[in-house]
Structures are given as C-alpha cells and as structure tokens.
Write a protein that binds this DNA or RNA. Structure first.
Lengths: 226, 226
DNA sequence: CTGGAAATGAAACAAGCGTTTGAAACGGTT
DNA sequence: AACCGTTTCAAACGCTTGTTTCATTTCCAG
C-alpha cells in the first residue's frame, strides 16, 4: 500500500489523467516555447509533467526527437483549435479578406489564452531546425495559399501570381510584426494607444483597409484636400 | 591606467592588431548572433578571439555582462556604418519615403556583407533581455521617428500621430518579415521569384508603392477594368 | 636594470547538463 | 499463485559549462 501522489506539487497544473507521453509533450512544448531548445532542460520538463527524467528517453529517445515531436504536436493542436476559414459561396472578397486577417491575428496573438503553441512555432520560423519544413508545408503554406486565393479574387485576375504572393507577404508581415516583435512595439507606442488600438479587431480593420486602399478597392487612408 | 597596447604578435586569422577587449567583443557578437546567449560558449568565443578563457572574466566580469556589451557594441557599430539618412531641403516626401525604405532594407538585409550585428539586434527584438531597452531607445526609436516624420509630411497633416505610427509599423513590419522570417519566405516563394524580385531595390519599390497607393498618393497596385 | 602592477595562460573547480543503468513496481494472462 | 513484458524510479555516469585559481609573462616607470 503505497501512497502514490496524495501530495500535490506546485506545478501550474497539468492533466494528471492524461498519458505520460501526452503530459511530456505538453510540458516540453511550453518549456521549449518559453526558453528555446538549449535553455529548456529535460529535468524541468519532467518536473512540469510529473514524470521521471528517464521517461523522456523511454518515450522519445532523446531531447532532439522530443523537440521535433513537440513542434508537430503544437501545430496539429493549433490546426484543430483554429481550422482554415471557409466562407459561404457569394461572400464578397473584401469580407473574406477582413475575415482572414482577423482570424490570423486571433490565431497568432491569441487574446483569449496564452498560445504557447504559436510561440513554439514562431521560434521555428525565426530559427529554423529540422522541424521547420513540416511546419511550413502542413501549417503555414495552406494558410498562405488561402490568402493568395482571396487576393486573386479581389484583383479580378489583374495581378500575376508573383504579385499576389508579394501582397500576401505584405499582409502577413504586418501580423507577424505584432506577434514576433510585440515587446518592442510596446516600447515604441504610447501605452494608452496600445490599449485602445492594438486589439485583433482594430488591427484587422487597419491592415485590411490598408490593403484594400492600396489595391484601389477602398478610399485612401488619408485624403488630402485636392 | 589604460595604456594602449601597441605591440603585435604572430599572425592569426582574426584582427590581432586590435585590443583583446575589442577582439572578444567582436567574436562574442558573432557567436551570440549565430547561436544565441545560451548556446554560445565562452570557450568558443575565446578561441575565435585568440584569447584565454580567463580573459572574458578579466575584462567583462561574466558572460551576461559580456552579452550586454556585445549588443551595445553591435548597434553602435551599425549606427556608424549606416547613419540616419538626411535629405536636402525640398526633397519630395515620396522620395524620402522611398529612400528610407531602401535604406532600411539595405541595413537589415545587408546584401553586401553578412550583418551579424543586425542578427544580434534581431535576437534582442524577438526575445528581449536587459539589453533591449537601450537598443530601442538608441537605435530603433530614432529610425522610427524619422519614418513617422516622413509620413506626417506625406499626409499633409491629415492623419493623427497614432495613425502615422500604425502606418509606420505597417511599413516596418514588411521589412521585418523578410529579415526575421527570410528562411520561411524562401520556402513559400518559388526560388526563381526570390532571385528576381527579392532584392533591396525591388522590395523597396513594392513596399513604397504599396504605402503610397494606400495613402492615395499613387495609382492603385491593381487596376480593374471598369 | 629592476620592482611591481597589469595581463596572460594552463589547469582545475563546482554545478548542471543529457543520458544510461539496473532494479523495483505494475498490469494482464495463464 | 507464478510468469513476463511494460512502465517507473532513484542514482549515477560522462561530459560540458561558466568561473576561479595561481603561477608566469609582459610592460613601463623609477
């Protein structure tokens, strides 16, 4: 008769009813996301997951393969939480664009809950390792293709695929900035302005309007008295 | 107290005529930029700088203070290499904008020589540490202010400072994407398209045209047959 | 030339890392 | 009960890390 875990550790709570393997993946994702591959330690991950240090090598072989699996786990989970947007037939391209940008911002900035999955994926984008190619093909490229398709509709076929891709990158780059360099943006912009304007709704409005105005589908952002 | 050492020793591959302190700073900058703070090792840095491991602690105290000094050294050097652009009186705002964006891309992407300084600064932007605040105040904010001032001229005072800042971020975000996520961009875009269009001239043209079109200062990027 | 501070270097330090071990505990089957 | 493959655990291994030690060399003023 041994008391297994009558005592609770001070860990910020993981589902103890989940598989040890799943617990490790979740804990590893959080740690890798927060500290990066080198700085995250197997010991910390195992403490967080309430398993022995040997469990990582038992289930995953070594730290590197655990990392690869963590990235895969992260973008699979994120794909389930935020599936690719679809629209009813006849939806205006402008509405689609607005919806796509809003969805992208929600997905990246995650105002509802702290998205460690995105943070981990972001690390792969910024400093690619072996896990990057799969991430791009399974997660990023599908989203990028949808965006380009919307832009194709929007420009009535007046733009080449290369131009569409470049405009798509312009849109993605803006969302990307707020996610990847959010801290610095917060230092550059007055705090009250952050609170007022830097939410997913207003940012999506701005980015969409900026694009539509550039494409001549909308009034310019700033009209001069002419 | 500080008598400059003027003697020269046998040759190596690094600048051996420089101060040991300077050699360490340069080597540390490269290593920190390439591998990050945790993964870079004092031993590697010292080997690269052709000094003993004890030298780091002798000149800088510890690894953390060496890192702080490296970041400072990087953005000071970069400021000297790429000073803030100035224009003759009467230069059109549109020309200024095009010049600023081109300068920014050259500075960030550095097509001439591998800019480890920028890579190190980028790491601070993405994962801020103690060195970030100084970097923002001394390097990033001045550039951002210049950009906002150009946009102010461009819109003839028809936009609020908050709007100007947001447009400025839209421009910066696009440049930022190519620098920070260049590898993923390279996976999303066909290789020949990269070679043809993704250079500092064509990118600057696109980003500038995109902005000017959005502000109604220029023909839309895509004109539909109406 | 010479004394003493500044700078350098080889070796060692304690601590932490990823990983391995071998035995104990578990869970289902006969 | 006894068996056996699977899973867990505490302890230790070998290695690398940042840092320190202390003897030696270098430098320049006296």
């Amino acid at each position: 008769m041994s008391s297994i875990n009558t005592k609770k550790k001070e860990s910020s709570e993981v589902n103890l009813n989940e598989d040890p393997r799943g617990r490790i993946l979740s804990a590893a994702g959080r740690e890798f996301a927060e500290k990066g591959f080198e700085a995250a330690t197997i010991r910390d991950i195992c403490t967080l997951a309430s398993v022995n240090v040997a469990a990582v090598n038992y289930y995953f072989g070594d730290k590197h393969r655990l990392y690869i699996e963590s990235v895969r786990h992260a973008h699979e989970e994120r794909s389930r939480q935020f599936p690719l947007p679809v629209w009813a037939d006849g939806t205006l391209p402008t509405e689609k664009l607005r919806g796509f940008v809003g969805n992208m911002l929600e997905r990246m900035l995650g105002f509802d809950k702290p998205p460690w999955q995105v943070q981990l994926m972001l690390r792969e984008v910024l400093h690619p390792t072996d896990a990057c190619r799969e991430l791009v093909e399974d997660y990023i490229r599908p989203h990028f293709s949808v965006l380009c398709k919307i832009l194709h509709e929007l420009t009535d076929g007046n733009s080449t695929p290369a131009e569409l891709r470049r405009i798509g990158l312009s849109i993605g780059g803006q969302c990307f900035l707020y996610r990847a360099a959010g801290d610095v943006v917060g230092m550059l912009i007055p705090p009250n302005e952050i609170k007022e304007m830097h939410n997913s709704v207003d940012l999506a409005d701005h980015i969409t309007a900026y694009c539509l105005a550039a494409l001549g589908k909308h009034a310019p952002l700033s009209v001069e008295a002419s």
